[in-house]
Amino acid sequence: MAKSIAVLLDDKRIGAVKGSDLEGKIEQMFGGQLSCFIVEMDDAKAKQVMDAFDTARVDSRGFITDVPIAFNRVIFEEIARTKSLGAEAVDGVLARVDEIQKAAAKEKEFLPCPEF
């Protein structure tokens, strides 16, 4: 079974893909109160993701969860760069595993607090 990852979108991220084809692929959750992209990958790629990040797990709906925060940031950057919600974006992420792991190590001690 293919696996998916939900990439949550706030206003800033939605702004970054405005005008592109990606805009039409935004999915709505919780009655339209939350937006996201759904990235899909085959089992081989999913296994690479699971192997690279030891906290990652697959939930009952086949979604990969509990990845580092840096993973979510990078996957959004790769979606925006490749204009894809498929293999290209996932390959972009897998090419940056070292960078994500370095950032993830710091996440155990510190996460920047949002300002509203």
Binding site: L8, D10, F30, Q33, L34, T65, I69, L111
Partner: peptide, 23 residues
């Protein structure tokens, strides 16, 4: 249905996204 999975909610918090009122 859309579940309130604990890890989903924690992930959203950790990313610093302001959660919608429904969460």
């Amino acid at each position: 249905k859309q579940k309130f999975s604990g890890s989903f909610v924690r992930g959203m918090v950790a990313e610093g996204l302001f959660p919608p009122k429904v969460i």
